[in-house]
């Protein structure tokens, strides 16, 4: 095998400005974080709303929730991002369309499309988790809440949601992990996040194995951090006595 090893590749200067390849990787991580945070915020807000809607007595609310989930779960993520990046701008009104094409840089348009696309995709999954959490609350709790005079809104706010969100913390955190991993798909619409950087660097330096390994390690590290965050949240919101060993 004629492969020249170079594990110090990250510290090499790129030849463009003063940066080293490490700077490029850090930029990539930065954009990854931006997409993940924006997308996850959209997903939590919209997903919780839809999840609640799917459990309300109103048939209209339920239908809206079900339709949303059906559409956004049956189209692959990649196609959804492509739709937001390539298709939707064409249907924007002219003035916005011009601003989009001319005034925003390529990275920014890709960033916005990717964040919205990933956010809406993940919202469908969060919706299902929230719905499952709400449906798992025993009907006795609902009865007790109503018997005390709570309105439906109060019932959700004080009885149902606090319990169901605690219950779905583990699967929600795995959705968060998926969301962070899925930011990599944004590289295919042109966002300069970590996978993009990885491709570029490996083309420049031909040190493919090293750079791929570093990026793999970074993802493993991100995952470990997310698991740590999840454990912290679970402990923080634990109800004493409810889970074994919580006393």
């Amino acid at each position: 095998m004629n492969y020249s090893w170079n594990w110090g590749v990250l510290l090499q200067p790129t030849g463009i400005g003063d940066s080293t390849y490490l700077n490029w990787i850090m930029t990539g991580i930065g954009w990854l974080a931006v997409i993940a945070i924006v997308a996850w915020s959209i997903a939590m807000l919209l997903g919780s709303l839809l999840g609640i809607m799917r459990t309300l007595p109103s048939p209209t609310a339920r239908a809206i929730g079900t339709t949303y989930v059906t559409i956004f779960r049956n189209i692959p993520l990649l196609i959804q991002l492509f739709i937001w990046f390539y298709v939707v701008p064409d249907f924007l009104p002219d003035s916005i369309h011009n601003w989009w094409i001319n005034d925003l840089g390529a990275n920014t348009t890709a960033l916005i499309s990717a964040s919205i696309g990933l956010g809406l995709f993940t919202a469908a999954r969060v919706c299902e988790q929230v719905r499952t959490g709400i449906e798992a609350i025993p009907p006795g709790q609902v009865n007790a809440g109503y018997a005390m005079g709570f309105s439906t809104a109060q019932l959700y706010r004080y009885v149902i949601l606090p319990q169901s969100f605690r219950m779905i913390l583990p699967p929600l955190s795995s959705e968060l992990t998926n969301c962070v991993k899925n930011t990599s798909v944004a590289s295919l619409v042109g966002v300069a996040e970590i996978i993009s950087q990885m491709k570029t660097i490996s083309e420049y330096t031909q040190n493919t194995i090293e750079i791929y390994t570093y990026v793999t390690l970074i993802f493993i590290l991100i995952n470990v951090c997310l698991i740590g965050l999840m454990n912290f949240l679970e402990k923080r919101f634990q109800v004493p006595g409810l889970i074994a060993g919580a006393k």
């Binding site: 492969y3 992990t177 991993k181 899925n182 990599s184 798909v185 491709k199 791929y212 993802f219 995952n223």
Partner: peptide, 25 residues
């Protein structure tokens, strides 16, 4: 745990590089 921590895209790129590389090696 390894394969669940990294994105599918990264795995695809790894093997796109590694399969011919190892085959040739």
């Amino acid at each position: 745990n390894l394969f669940r921590s990294i994105p599918l895209l990264l795995v695809l790129m790894w093997f796109y590089f590694a399969v011919p590389f190892i085959y040739t090696g």
